[in-house]
Design a protein around this nucleic acid. Structure first.
Length: 400
RNA sequence: GGGUCGGUGCCCGAGUGGUUAAUGGGGGUGGACUGUAAAUCCACUGGCUCUGCCUACGUUGGUUCAAAUCCAACCCGGCCCA
């Protein structure tokens, strides 16, 4: 049971859950563990995976995971942590995102490889909350709204900040916590998993369950993973994520440079390694962490290869070592000046940017620095098969 | 609906008639350096096959030799009042 908890959970939380487990055992049934995800993006990243790892632990302990696809609530958007009203998504976008999520969670894969156990009967229910939310009529909605006050809503940090700073809050956003809470009623949840930032919403679930005469769920709040910047929460919109679907090399290289201060969090939240077992040298520790996390997704063998590749890449031998992506010259009109070439081949966003890069000394052809943006190439045969380089990381082999 | 303040480049945010894509910060990219694609320092950061030419300060018109800056209408938002 202890393994259901990350470090840092207090004892009484432990006991409350223990009591819940005992009660369920007495009734001879598994716990219903709710985890809601809003299919608002298309990629699951490591920050999410903490929750899924925990949910999986419950599954493996014999309980039932209730994965709620917030197909209805996604159309409102969770105001949590948002400084602005979220754009509402269409049904089609939401459905497409949901499909991608399920695939990334391992639908259709054997449970040994998947993040969640989709195989064992009784261990997983996938529900869409439109199932019960889309059918609510106005009297029911008014009933829900009646269970909370404006004061309570404004006490929520995100709302109060926005209100205080004069950022608009649309009325329907107040509905979000209520609807998410109602999900708990609809699926009769014993436990709800969420990040610590979900405290308000999870608590709302408890209030509503009480309102509807159910026993209240236990909220298991897990720490939020800091992003690659080591400061803010890992979140797609901040661009500090590591995606679950990223290739091993990119995953490893990103993790390898996580700030020293965040390494222990990553180890505790994403791996089963004990931090004492690791080298003291921070650089070595980073590498060990990156290796372990990559391995937990792709297996040790692949992770080790990524580690080696990453080292080679940084060594600057990329052009020779790894496979250089190709770039077609078909869109280039000859004669072509150097700056135009970089933009036409797609290595620079614009020809003006290409000029700047060349002036900044970033451009090379076959390892030789290009200094004049106006240097001219008269035909395809001048460039065919050669490697064009921008900075240390971007290489393209030119093909006709 | 009334009053009032505001809408500036990827983001935040200066600028309130007159060189110049428009101060500063963040982010991003590049360079140097290094235990790392870290930290630090430096440079660049609208577009265009570019010694010049275009397009930009909510939208559309107007005043002016000249507007992000003045005027009008409209759209969007904050606050106060109803």
């Amino acid at each position: 049971m202890a393994d259901l908890f990350p470090d840092g959970q207090s004892d009484d939380a432990d006991q409350a859950l223990a009591a819940r487990l005992a009660a369920a055992e007495l009734e001879g049934r598994p716990l219903r563990v709710k985890l809601g995800i809003d299919p608002t993006g298309s990629d699951i990243h490591l920050g999410h995976s903490i929750l899924f790892r925990k949910l999986r632990a419950f599954q493996d302990a014999g309980h039932t995971a209730i994965l709620i696809i917030g197909d209805f609530t996604a159309r409102i958007g969770d105001p949590t942590g948002k400084s602005a009203t979220r754009v509402q998504l269409t049904t089609e976008q939401v459905e497409a995102n949901a499909t991608t999520y399920l695939r990334q969670l391992g639908q259709g894969q054997p449970k040994e490889q998947a993040l969640l156990d989709f195989e064992t009967p009784g261990r997983l229910e996938v529900r869409r909350n439109s199932e019960w939310l889309a059918g609510l009529d106005l009297p029911q909605v008014i009933g829900l709204l009646g269970t909370a006050t404006v004061g309570q809503m404004l006490a929520k940090d995100d709302f109060s900040k926005r209100y205080g700073s004069g950022t608009p809050i649309a009325l329907h956003e107040f509905l979000y916590p209520l609807l998410q809470g109602y999900d708990s009623v609809a699926v009769d949840a014993d436990v709800e998993l969420g990040g610590t930032d979900q405290k308000f919403n999870v608590a709302m679930g408890r209030d509503l369950q009480r309102h509807f005469g159910q026993r209240t769920q236990f909220g298991l709040l897990l720490p939020i993973l800091v992003g690659l910047d080591g400061v803010q929460k890992m979140s797609k919109s901040l661009g500090n994520t590591v995606g679950l679907e990223e290739d091993p090399l990119s995953m490893y290289s990103k993790l390898e440079k996580v700030g020293d201060a965040a390494i222990n969090d990553y180890l505790i939240l994403l791996t089963d390694l004990a931090s004492e077992a690791l080298p003291d040298n921070p650089r070595e520790k980073q590498k060990a962490m990156a290796l372990a996390v990559t391995a937990s997704r792709y297996g040790m063998e692949v992770a080790q290869k990524a580690q080696v590749d990453a080292a080679t890449l940084v060594g600057g031998e990329a052009a020779a070592a790894a496979d250089v992506p190709e770039a077609s010259l078909s869109a280039v009109n000859f004669p072509a000046k150097a700056f135009y070439l970089f933009s036409a081949v797609g290595m620079c966003a614009s020809s003006s940017e290409a000029r700047r890069q060349i002036k900044g000394g970033a451009a090379r052809l076959e390892g030789e620095k290009i200094t004049d943006p106006n240097q001219e190439f008269s035909s395809v045969s001048d460039l065919e098969g050669k490697v064009l380089q921008l900075g240390k990381k971007t290489f393209r082999r030119l093909v006709p």
